[in-house]
Computed example of a mutant assay.
Amino acid sequence: MSETSLTIETILAPELTLCNVPASSKKRVLEFIAEQIHLHNATLGDTQIFSNLIARERLGSTGIGQGIAIPHCRLEGLEHVIGLLVTLSESVDFDAIDNQPVDLVFALVVPKEATSEHLELLSQLAEKFNDRTFCDRLRQSEDAITLFQRMTSGR
């Protein structure tokens, strides 16, 4: 394992950054995430990703409040962390801690062994998403390229 620390910039690919995704439910959002990651990396099964995301949600919602969710899971056989960022065209109920519907989702899929990296990335995301102005800028992104640039530049 390399010594470089993981950052949001190193795990988020432009093709896994999507704007105004239609979703009718939390389940549908998680299915969409699994499908997109599978399209990005065909060696990863969408069913396996979806099952792991659902299993993690059963432990407690990953809706962190203020319309934001960070669904995440560990995956056997994964070699590097994968991030996916979407804005939803309409907010969906995510059982968030503040009971607010979610429209900004950053998913994290990490190798089974990557415990410290996993926690570090969750902490980085929580810090970024704690900035309301930053979140508003993400929500106002008109297209995926802008969304990606705003997320990775932090401005």
Rank of each mutant, 00 (worst) to 15 (best):
T4W: 02
T4D: 12
L6P: 03
T7R: 11
I8D: 08
I8W: 06
E9F: 10
T10F: 10
I11D: 02
L12K: 06
E15W: 09
E15C: 15
T17Y: 04
C19E: 12
N20P: 01
N20Q: 15
V21L: 11
L30F: 12
E35S: 11
H38C: 00
H38A: 10
L39W: 08
L39Y: 06
N41P: 00
T43N: 14
L44S: 06
G45D: 08
G45Y: 00
I49E: 00
F50W: 05
F50Q: 02
A55N: 03
A55L: 07
R56P: 01
E57F: 02
L59Q: 13
S61I: 02
S61C: 00
S61N: 01
S61H: 01
T62E: 00
Q66K: 13
A69M: 04
P71S: 08
H72R: 07
H72W: 03
C73Q: 01
L75R: 06
G77D: 11
L78K: 06
V81G: 03
I82H: 13
G83D: 05
L84H: 10
L85W: 07
V86G: 10
V86H: 06
L88V: 08
S89D: 14
E90A: 15
V92D: 06
D93C: 08
D93P: 01
F94Q: 01
D95P: 01
A96V: 03
N99L: 11
Q100I: 04
P101I: 05
V102F: 02
V105W: 08
V105C: 11
V105P: 04
V105A: 05
F106W: 10
L108D: 03
V110Y: 03
P111Y: 06
K112M: 13
E113H: 13
E113Q: 14
T115F: 14
H118T: 07
H118S: 11
L119G: 13
E120F: 13
L121I: 15
L125C: 12
A126D: 07
E127N: 15
K128P: 07
F129V: 02
F129R: 12
D131A: 11
R132G: 12
F134W: 09
C135K: 12
D136R: 14
R137T: 15
R137Y: 11
R139Q: 10
R139D: 08
S141H: 08
S141L: 07
E142D: 10
I145H: 13
L147R: 04
L147N: 07
F148M: 03
Q149L: 12
S153E: 13
